[in-house]
Design a protein around this nucleic acid. Structure first.
Lengths: 220, 220
DNA sequence: TTTCTTATTGACCAACTGGTCAATAGCGCG
DNA sequence: CGCGCTATTGACCAGTTGGTCAATAAGAAA
């Protein structure tokens, strides 16, 4: 068997160099944003010449687009929709909320790049139509949870999946994206483990409570 | 009576020029971010020489800090906590959710600047301790709503105000902050009026359902 | 080996950008 | 009126930055 993998045409290991540049770019973009990032700094962190980054990615924008695609790949693999079905509707939905929260917590680069991409009105993302398909399996799993919940009679509220997903993501996203301004504004580090645990409990209860709630609640 | 206001020492109207620069800066920062913004573009949009911006704000960072302070001022005046008490616990809380959502929807500059400030780990905000006090009246109003709700027996869940506020804000924030990537990823413009109305209903129900829910819900 | 393709480098550049400064022009004050 | 203070300008600058390019190295193909 060949030692590792078929080497790409050219020199030592083009694939590895490309990956190193991409990793360094994600780190730099996360810390400085698109406009604030420096190609020289990225190349240096990757241990290659600056020209090589342009050789592999064409331009700063090209590198950004590649970084963004990689981010969405990580987002997809972080959400394990297969595991949800086995948990049943209530626990499955709760798990989806906490997993999404954890994903944003553990991957600041996802949050940072999504923010920056929205600053540019999703220009680079619109050019990547494959991203849309990533959400299909997740939405499918959510549909199944909702249907099963209604069948069992525990879920009484109607819910549209995409809006529900937006709400559920937002609960986790904001906490992570605005970590610094929130901490500065209200005092107290939000990322202390017990605060995180409190919040995780709050938001999963919130989603479940809504799904289980009778649509006609007592009017005060 | 003097025509308008006492003019400041110096030439024509320093205050007006300062305000024009600040407005232009907020617009430019919103569109391009801190690193992407150009001092020359800001000055041109304000109709003044670039040097004047430095004269009034010292540096790009100084201008950023001033813009950020102005943003938080707008955030405060957009939340009318006095009106909440009159609505009673359920409707008051619902109103708080929808008002916060509307605030982020109508003021993209708040969302954009908060995002960028978090990229810099809240460095500029920590230097502005007056921001902390802005939240006190809001938190006070929330506390009163919660207490009244518990007294009436409609709110059965325990809730800590700051975490509840984070959750409630996140529901509206994410929808606006990620408008472009969400639209690109799932197809369909999120800002069509009926989608907004659907979402508004969803998130206010979500918060209220949680507060009203019995902590011990039926386990599936 | 020779050749062809491609990865990789380091020097180089033209454009840009935050910031400075000397000069000027209004305005209030004595 | 003349003095002093400050807003305002436009020219200027030095450091930076995305991007280019000719030269080189190194594997694959023949």
């Amino acid at each position: 068997m060949p030692a590792r993998q078929r080497r790409i045409r050219g020199s030592r290991d083009a694939e590895a160099a490309r990956a190193a540049i991409l990793d360094a770019a994600i780190a730099e973009f996360t810390a400085k944003g698109l406009a604030g990032a420096r190609m020289e700094a990225i190349a240096q962190a990757a241990g290659v010449a600056k020209g090589l980054a342009f050789h592999h990615f064409g331009s700063k924008d090209g590198l950004w687009a590649a970084a963004l695609a990689e981010i969405y790949r990580r987002l997809r693999v972080g959400q394990d929709e297969a595991a949800l079905d086995a948990l049943g509707p209530v626990e499955g939905m709760r798990r989806l909320v906490t997993d999404t929260f954890r994903l944003f917590r553990d991957h600041p680069e996802i949050v940072a790049l999504m923010n920056e991409e929205n600053l540019h009105r999703g220009r680079h993302l619109r050019a990547a139509p494959e991203v849309r398909a990533l959400y299909n399996p997740l939405f499918g799993a959510m549909e199944r949870l909702l249907a099963e919940g209604r069948r069992q009679g525990v879920f009484r509220a109607e819910a549209e999946v995409t809006l529900l997903y937006v709400a559920l993501s937002g609960l986790g996203y904001f906490y992570c994206a605005n970590r610094w301004t929130l901490s500065a504004a209200f005092a107290g580090d939000l990322f202390r483990p017990e605060r995180i645990a409190d919040y995780e409990r709050l938001i999963s209860e919130m989603v479940v409570a809504h799904l289980c709630a009778d649509v006609r609640r007592q009017e005060m």
